[in-house]
């Protein structure tokens, strides 16, 4: 009973307090404080973690290092602040993926201006770290597509059949049915995909280098991109069951072989067979 009585009192007290005219303001204040506090704490924790990770892997001054590299190797065409010049476009907003694609495939720095930058062995200063630093600098200028993760480009996780259908629908009109490449207008071309790494293929799709259109994630989802990578990598590693592949560019080389090998051999055979000729007596 006493207990009941006590609790009854306390219940009454809380109930009374809840009904106090100022109670609603107190509650609101408390809720705001709580949300704000949690948010602040969370933000500090996470940012300190990022900073820690960057320091741990030596990325703390990536942007600064990247800027130095940029000034050494890129600024002459792209401008001192990547704002672009008459001989090179602005790089603000192109993102780290673009940098990784262009530099790791040797296309940039450009050897000489032409219709299109060819793939070539990368410059001597190019390595994983310098590409990352340069990418960080460009990313810091205006964002843009980031470098895909290893999982996003893992061909082993993709579906070849689905990728093949997407590849045929979106890529082969320029890159040929197995990615052997093809010609475009005015000296431009769709390069062969034989040497492109999985990461570079992904980056090309999200950044649209040179004559290539951008295939962003709303047109082709990241999973579909991985399927396509699986098909491209799979088909180029696939052996030719029918003998020599003849460049895998279709009937042009087949016709050439039919004439140069087939008809030449048969002409030689005809000459051989008729070498001994009968003369009139």
């Amino acid at each position: 009973m006493e207990f009941n009585k006590e609790s009854g009192i306390s219940v009454n007290r809380i109930t009374a307090g809840r009904r106090h005219p100022l109670a609603r303001y107190a509650v609101l204040l408390l809720a705001l404080a709580l949300i704000g506090g949690v948010y602040t704490v969370a933000l500090t924790v996470s940012s300190s973690r990022q900073a820690d990770a960057a320091i741990a892997s030596g990325r703390a001054d990536d942007v600064a290092e990247g800027k130095k590299l940029f000034e050494q190797s890129c600024a002459s065409c792209h401008g001192r602040n990547a704002e672009g010049t008459a001989s090179g476009p602005t790089l603000i907003g192109v993102g780290a993926a673009s940098v990784d694609f262009q530099v790791s495939s040797g296309r940039m720095p450009l050897a000489n201006p032409g219709a299109q930058a060819p793939r070539k062995p990368p410059a001597p200063w190019v390595n994983e770290d310098t590409v990352r630093q340069l990418g960080a600098y460009i990313q810091s200028l205006g964002g843009g597509p980031a470098v895909p993760t290893a999982e996003q480009v893992d061909a082993a996780k993709g579906d070849k059949s689905k990728g093949g259908e997407l590849f045929r629908a979106n890529c082969i009109q320029c890159h040929n049915f197995v990615g052997s490449g093809g010609a475009l207008t005015q000296g431009k071309y769709a390069p062969p995909l034989h040497e492109a790494t999985e990461k570079q293929i992904y980056e090309a799709m999200i950044t649209g280098p040179q004559a290539m259109p951008v295939f962003n994630d709303s047109i082709i989802t990241p999973e579909q991109k991985r399927d396509m990578i699986a098909y491209i990598v799979g088909v180029r590693e696939e052996p030719n069951p029918g003998g020599a592949g003849l460049g895998r560019i279709g009937p042009v080389t087949e016709g050439l072989v039919a004439w140069v090998v087939g008809l030449s051999l048969l002409s030689l055979a005809a000459i051989w067979i008729t070498a001994k000729r009968r003369q009139a007596k």
Binding site: R168, N176, F177, G242, A244, E254
Partner: peptide
């Protein structure tokens, strides 16, 4: 000498076309 590797071309769809 491999000729006409149809498996590489894929099935015909009027919407698709290959370079070369």
């Amino acid at each position: 000498a491999q000729i006409n590797p149809i498996w590489l071309f894929g099935p015909y769809t009027p919407a698709d076309i290959s370079a070369g």
